[in-house]
Nucleic acid binder design. Sequence first.
DNA 1: CATGAATGAGTATTCATTCAT
DNA 2: AATGAATGAATACTCATTCAT
Lengths: 210, 210, 210, 210
Amino acid sequence: MVFECSRKPRQRRKEARPSEIIAAAVELWKERGFAATRLEDIAKGAGIAKGTVYRYFPSKEAVFEAAVEEQIASTTMGRADDLRTANANSEEMLLRYFENVRAELVDSGSFIFLKVLLAEGHRFPDLVRKYEDLVIKNGADVVRGILRRGVDRGELKPQAMNLDPTLVMAPAMMLSLWGTVFDGIQVPDVQHMHHQHVALLLSSLQSEAI
Amino acid sequence: MVFECSRKPRQRRKEARPSEIIAAAVELWKERGFAATRLEDIAKGAGIAKGTVYRYFPSKEAVFEAAVEEQIASTTMGRADDLRTANANSEEMLLRYFENVRAELVDSGSFIFLKVLLAEGHRFPDLVRKYEDLVIKNGADVVRGILRRGVDRGELKPQAMNLDPTLVMAPAMMLSLWGTVFDGIQVPDVQHMHHQHVALLLSSLQSEAI
Amino acid sequence: MVFECSRKPRQRRKEARPSEIIAAAVELWKERGFAATRLEDIAKGAGIAKGTVYRYFPSKEAVFEAAVEEQIASTTMGRADDLRTANANSEEMLLRYFENVRAELVDSGSFIFLKVLLAEGHRFPDLVRKYEDLVIKNGADVVRGILRRGVDRGELKPQAMNLDPTLVMAPAMMLSLWGTVFDGIQVPDVQHMHHQHVALLLSSLQSEAI
Amino acid sequence: MVFECSRKPRQRRKEARPSEIIAAAVELWKERGFAATRLEDIAKGAGIAKGTVYRYFPSKEAVFEAAVEEQIASTTMGRADDLRTANANSEEMLLRYFENVRAELVDSGSFIFLKVLLAEGHRFPDLVRKYEDLVIKNGADVVRGILRRGVDRGELKPQAMNLDPTLVMAPAMMLSLWGTVFDGIQVPDVQHMHHQHVALLLSSLQSEAI
DNA sequence: CATGAATGAGTATTCATTCAT
DNA sequence: AATGAATGAATACTCATTCAT
């Protein structure tokens, strides 16, 4: 994170540069928002000159696209594996899923991508499609997997499979976004809310046999 | 909607102008997004000259702020009354609430305010606070009201009052926003999802006595 | 020509502006060349702000295109009429044609268009085509007209019609351009050279009957 | 032409480099024009890195200057000798001269130098002077030589010596440039035009004795 | 020496805001 | 009051030149 301090000028870091630029950009986007961040700020944040950014990205928007794709590639994949290999009961699994969403959006800062895609999706149609394909659909698969396991293990009733996964994902995402906007005023305890929502889901989906 | 029909120019009433400007602005924001809409477009949409906008609003951002405030003043209030005076069972009430949220965000276009506040909240701190105070808190009150009525009528169990209203509002809002971003690709049937979510809520909150 | 001195700032001159901008641009192109003239220089030369240029022309190149088209529209047409209505013998007519070419290119400064089209024709393919269609072909017609009149009047022998008009135009143009490049060093007397070339043409084309 | 074939890198002889760079530059200037060719393109064309160009030339403009000087040194000299030693009659000599001009400008690509000097002479005052001194004046000498020989051999009348050589050179050059600009649209047959022009010259200059 | 990553001055263009008419 | 022409600060992007490796 402290990648810009004590570096000599004109240092050559071809391999590391793209990620450094993206990291600096994300940091600034989180602080000031996407629209208010100039390319020069990003360069300064990464400790390099304006022109250097253009050695790695053809345009300002390309930095954003690359950032989203990096996010897609890294975190999403992680989440899926995490949950597919776990061995826990349905409540535990759902809680873990909610926590994963929260950690990804809030802690690792990818809420900024979701916000920009929500607000300026028009400018990035391809990216919206890719985000949906890889993040949203993948998330839906993960949720479906959790539900199926629950049914298979007899923890959830068969009708659980009829639940649209979006009813699990959307609240998880929105509740996480919430705190990044309305913070300082009404700081909802995201984790508590997630627990409540999981309880809600379970009380409705749980097999009576249990 | 009918903000620039066949009135003779120069005969417009001074009082009507601000709303006309806001209506034109909202229309354009819905079509092209907030960042991509220039003040000149708004003026043209309202059938007036660029400079005239400045008679009524000190800056471009002020138009946005006024738009949000108008929205806050009109629709939110309406929704509250609507639901407070209604006489229906809890399922009906919850469905009506979800439909109100959907109609307000999607049909009357106020999703644009939510998007901009999510993505560029930094630029409008006062507005965020006001939105939260009036829209979010008010919404929470409405939801609480519905739950209380349900409990009072014996339709919901007493613990229903412990449910954080955000667990009702956030999904309602997110599911509505969804379709304005990921449209054309994966168009979720918002209303169906709302029904599912209400069923979910009810199955967990319903009094066993019923 | 002295249109930029004593004007109040923010004066509104919608009608006159485009020509003023073009005039200022041509002046600077003549002095410093096309590539070395920044849009801001043009604006300053016209006594206006940078942004004002964009009210009238969508881009820097568009200023050049408009300048060429203005030139095409005005001068070329003049030359044609001038020579078609004149009543003089062939020598007089040819001399007058050469003088017209020289005056147009050198005195009224359109040599700059020819230079840019020669050197950067790639960037303005449409303009090259238009220039050829209207200036070059028109010039060829004028020359052919002079030759035909000469033949009709018995001043030139019939074979004069076989002369490619380019053999009259190209020298006229090149000899005129010459002095705008190699001036100060070897200033050829363009007019004298034109006389010589006309003599050359006549001695070869003149009817022996005369 | 063969400036980047299959020699092992790092084995290139230092002495050959400058010409290789110039050859690559000229090739690109011919294709895309002078202004549109970046230094990096030239380096790539010469099969070397950008920085290496600066080992041999202090600046981008210096490459152009060296290119012109190379052209001046090689071709012009060749042409002079060619024509001074030849043994042919005046018509043959003039045709050969025209063909030499055409070949040099069009085939070996030095039209680009003429174009740039015409359009951007301001930037290269020394070069313009040199070009004039060596190319133009030398050309004039050659033409004078041809005329003198013609007079001496009794093929041309004595007054031929009064003809300004520019009246031979300028048309030769302009007619050659023509096709590099207006190509594809009105492709004049340069060689045919040259024949006509020579005929024109001869009919006026020929000694009546012949 | 050669390389090509890094630099940053330079430039075209946009658009919120002002103000003469 | 209304207009829309004029303004100029702001900003993305280019590319000749430098220099660490």
